[in-house]
Nucleic acid binder design. Structure first.
Lengths: 345, 345
DNA sequence: TTGTAAGCGTTATCAT
DNA sequence: ATGATAACGCTTACAA
């Protein structure tokens, strides 16, 4: 069904190795033969068998990607960045999702090993000890996105958004707007992202000489429901906060929804800033001010680092962090001048 | 670096074919040897080389997926359904995105051919003549999601949501709520989805004995911007429509945004129904009533059909259409009783 | 029950 | 400049 190099050889009346050379633009072959064979290959609809090539070359030009679920807009955009970058470098992407099920996760990793993926990128927030042990022994480069590399293997690097910086930037924005009582609606407790964003928030307050009030940290869960529940706690506070920085956009969305139901005017009575810049942030009303994660770049850099590792570039730091960018929209109540000032920065 | 079947053979003191049989649970082998070898393989961390296996077996247990971009929530959910179903059947997914660039699209297909994907699923709205010609000649089963199979090849089947039915269901919902002047905010002209949804809309009107007014079909573009622009046209109409059925959720979101800006009360002054049920539809305020596309199922069925084709099941119709489900939320202004009635259906 | 050998489609190392 | 030949890791007749 599929034309092989041998079929072409036969049709051209040469040996299959000559065909291989002609197709590989190998210099030690006559220009005439090369052209003739290449033309013939084109006519016959020849497409090289990547599997066979991988077998002899020892590399498959394949990158394995492990995600919890691609039906998460954040993950989807990262994967988009991974795919386009991989493609640009001649690599294909094998996608596996784990749904946060450890068993499926293990199967995914096994499958990627079976397919001999040249590198693996993990865009799952859970840190699988699985990858560490299982992949490490094979020597396959692993790039972790938004999670950390506990064991210090040179073949495992991580890359993430600078959560502390993001927390600082978001808080500074609110401070600049004149807010002094700023709440932080937290994510899932114990999540390191959450801790770092909160640290950034506290640092910004401290640097601005604003007293930090412990009760202004309100529990959440990283989802809309957490934001919705948070509103009541927030409104019960005395003195009441005038602004809230949320762990992520989903939390902010929940907060906004609850506020709308409570007829609480956003941003006048409460300024809100999120984190992530999911696609919907811009479509909300009021549109959400947020710290954008460089999702596409995260994916692109992950591939680039994987390829560098593959190329044996040992000069890489084992962690890279990218800065998020504040996107000022309506929910924080910035005036036009403030917006201009920010976007010019 | 990777343990091969030969390494195990050597360690076990048997031939490599014995190992192969033991690992494949081949019946013609002593139970003792089988267990001993399997245990050994486990200890040595053996993972079979899928590429080598594909070479000899003639199939790669791989499904190629072509999308425009996975950073589209609809596509992402479909791909999620594809991946989990493929995984359940022991298949891996190779993901390629085309970004609507014909050149990249061609490269993607070429790459999938090179990787010898057993089947290809296209979740891109553009119908590439590419797939048709290029893939068809290889005999690889192709499943088109939400697009049509022009040439009638047995190896190319398509699967989509029943757009006409969806349009009917959405319109009937509005009719049942008492609306008689219902507008349709269209998608990109020429898009067959758009035409079918509009047909369903008109049929529902006709069946209800409501006169169809041509000017109630308002231009859109399938994106939020189209919905935003549509509001002005809609408000200029005399008599003014009391409800709008939008080509898709993004259009509805734009319409809602414009309405909010114009301080037009939704659903009281204008009831709105969308199409797709993207994740954000539920988070909007008012939450969007919409016709849900069975995204996960679309993915699942696509894989199942691909596998059936692969198994040589010739009994498949060349097109399958799944019914969308009306999800009643706030934007259409249904009362509680109506909601209950619907969800019980 | 096991081993030997051939072959899948490549690339690469020999000769020639 | 080209042709044999081996090798990659696996499955599977065919022998034994």
């Amino acid at each position: 069904m599929n034309v092989s190099i041998k079929d072409i050889a036969q049709a051209a009346g040469v040996s299959h190795s000559t065909v291989s050379r002609a197709l590989a633009d190998n210099p030690l072959i006559s220009a005439a033969a090369r052209q003739r064979i290449q033309a013939l290959a084109g006519q016959m609809g020849y497409v090289p068998n990547a599997g066979a090539r991988g077998l002899v070359l020892g590399r498959t030009m394949t990158i394995g990607v492990v995600v919890t679920t691609i039906a998460d807009p954040f993950v989807a955009e990262v994967v988009q960045g991974i795919e386009s970058t991989a493609h640009a470098h001649g690599y294909s992407v094998i996608l596996t999702s784990s749904d946060n099920d450890p068993e499926r996760e293990a199967q995914s990793v096994e499958m990627l090993r079976a397919r001999r993926a040249d590198a693996v990128i993990v865009a799952s927030s859970r840190i699988g000890d699985l990858y560490q042990d299982d992949l490490q022994e094979t020597g396959v480069p692993v790039v972790l996105i938004n999670s950390h590399n506990d064991q210090g293997s040179a073949q495992v690097v991580s890359i993430s958004v600078d959560n502390r910086h993001g927390g600082t930037v978001a808080t500074q924005h609110l401070l600049r707007l004149g807010h002094r009582r700023i709440a932080y609606i937290a994510g899932l407790p114990g999540h390191s992202d959450d801790g770092l964003r909160c640290t950034g928030y506290q640092e910004a307050l401290r640097d601005a000489g604003v007293a930090f009030d412990e009760q202004f940290i309100i529990a959440g869960d990283g989802r809309a429901s957490g934001g919705e529940r948070a509103l009541a706690s927030l409104l019960a506070l005395r003195p009441r906060p005038t602004a809230a920085f949320c762990y992520n956009d989903m939390t902010a969305i929940g907060l906004l929804a609850a506020a709308q139901r409570a007829k609480l005017d956003i941003p006048r009575r409460l300024a809100v800033v999120g984190f992530d810049d999911i696609p919907f942030a811009a479509l909300l009303h009021p549109a959400l001010t947020t710290v954008a994660q460089p999702k596409h770049e995260l994916g692109r850099r992950a591939v680039e680092r994987a390829l560098a590792l593959l190329a044996g570039d040992g000069e890489q730091p084992d962690h890279l962090s990218l800065q998020g960018q504040l996107i000022v929209r309506e929910s924080s109540g910035a005036r036009a001048s403030e917006k201009v000032k920010r976007s010019a920065t």
